[in-house]
Design a protein around this nucleic acid. Sequence first.
DNA 1: TTGTAGGCGTTATCAA
DNA 2: TTGATAACGCCTACAA
Lengths: 342, 342
Amino acid sequence: MSTPTLRDVAEAAGVHAATASRALNPETRRLVNSDTARRVIKAAEALGYQPNPIARSLKTSKSGTIGLVLPDLTNPLFPPIVRGIEDVLGPAGFSALIVNTDNDPAREQQQVMTLRSRQVEGLIVATARLEHPLLQQLHEQGVRMVLVNRRTDDLDVPSITPDDARGVELAVEHLVKLGHTRIAHLAGPQSTSTGVVRARAFHSALRGHGLDDDPALLVTCDYWSEEEGARALRQVLDGGAEFTAVVAGNDLIALGCYDVFAERGIDCPGEVSVVGFNDMPFLDKLRPPLTTVAVPHHQIGVEAGRMLLESIHEPDRSPRSVFLPLSLVVRGSTAAAPASRA
Amino acid sequence: MSTPTLRDVAEAAGVHAATASRALNPETRRLVNSDTARRVIKAAEALGYQPNPIARSLKTSKSGTIGLVLPDLTNPLFPPIVRGIEDVLGPAGFSALIVNTDNDPAREQQQVMTLRSRQVEGLIVATARLEHPLLQQLHEQGVRMVLVNRRTDDLDVPSITPDDARGVELAVEHLVKLGHTRIAHLAGPQSTSTGVVRARAFHSALRGHGLDDDPALLVTCDYWSEEEGARALRQVLDGGAEFTAVVAGNDLIALGCYDVFAERGIDCPGEVSVVGFNDMPFLDKLRPPLTTVAVPHHQIGVEAGRMLLESIHEPDRSPRSVFLPLSLVVRGSTAAAPASRA
DNA sequence: TTGTAGGCGTTATCAA
DNA sequence: TTGATAACGCCTACAA
């Protein structure tokens, strides 16, 4: 015999299915005589009754699932965020459906369609670009969502991001204390809030320390990747401007620098110091171990999960945005500036 | 107005809902006049009709979801497998629900319950232990599943694993060619097929090359972790037996060796060579870059997805197991054996 | 080839 | 407090 249904339980308890439903659902249990309730619950246990969430969904039009839109799960940034989200969602009875967009808007659109057709009750989105028509449109359609890591311009949607500006300040401060005065920035894509905010914070940090802000020391990467990081560093190097330190847009870009160091025989941190951003796993095993800004990824997930649950349960709350505090992890890729050759 | 239903489409096309259903479903389209079909399809497009998979599930008792049981998504091994699975499942109309067990059997049981209550149509399981009562029980209950990475004893369930034995052979062969004769193995947990198979293959490879198989050169790790790897290597070192190379159970264990090298001032590969297993990302950025056995993780996912689909669509096929070929990636952590000090 | 009717398992509404 | 009834959106015998 197959799995017992509510009817079976009701029958076993000698009540109507509707009553059994009420007794089994904590929300409505108070509507039923506590003796009957007990009886129903006991019957349910005896039969090993498991409610069928699909039938429930059909009736309530609540799927108990949310969608998680990532660029690429393979980026070590995301798994801890996913775990954080699930740690909050699971106990609340929700499951996450994960999709990867590979930064392809067409694919993203298609994947979001899939999620919506599966009736997700909300979206956690890690792929936001500053201009993002799809998100705009979803928002207008009243789709509940929370942005993580990145934000979108002019869109009143809650977001959970690291305090990127503060992270860059920490990095610059650290380098300045080590005596660096000529610092380059390999910025991330300027289509993302992360890329823009970090670059802007970099400039203002330089000015804050009274350093000059040489345009030759800023290169923008088209992707958050090693290849782009390498390309960007080569470009600075080939430009001929002097510098003794690099603030990389993120760890992958910093790893690209390592490739160029090897390629050109540059000593890090002897000749050039590097700071990354994110604190990916295993960075301490590199040579030199990478100094970087640690982002509380798990926490980002937790907060995002909470915020989405909140907006599901209290749809009228006005959206808040959260900036999570960051810390600098000093390792071996940064050292005192070499004696000035000027 | 909310999302259009099948009825709306039918009405728009001037047919009955049943006809619309038949027209929209490729399986049954041939039952309907091709003109009517065209009309229905056009109406569906005009309205932006999306079938409600929940309603469909309730009727067909097919959820279109499968469960993916992982120890921990945060282990870089798994994301590529997940992507591989989704690459196959997505186009087939399935979505994956991912759960993490943290290697805790109680948590695993609870998570699997959740998955089953969500009516997943099958399970892909990466947490198999050799003795695994839960899997045994699920199998007896007729739950469709595919094992990845690891297998289970005495259970007639399809599995997709790397050809672990061959991988170890490749590693040992490589070391022998470099002149190593005293080789240690830091084995993974012997509760997993992976740990056992690799250890067994290690012994037989040594014998195959006529080397002696000193028990002092084998230590078993309780977990696949850096900490355990470090502990195991210290144990070999402290045992005093001579050796010039290590075959680590996996990359994390190898990373633990790096910690011990740093701690004790041992030169790798000058004094000791190390080979890992898995080829995690960024291993080429370590110092020295880690020589390791590359496992086709994405492909494992693809094959697992395919096999699960197969067993869903043709339940009577007898289970097959697949061993995927491996290759050795030679990097900087292995070098010629130092001149014998004997 | 198309329509009718019934039901998948649950919950919401109404009446008793 | 409980029961009867209908409905969520879809699919599928069966009948026409």
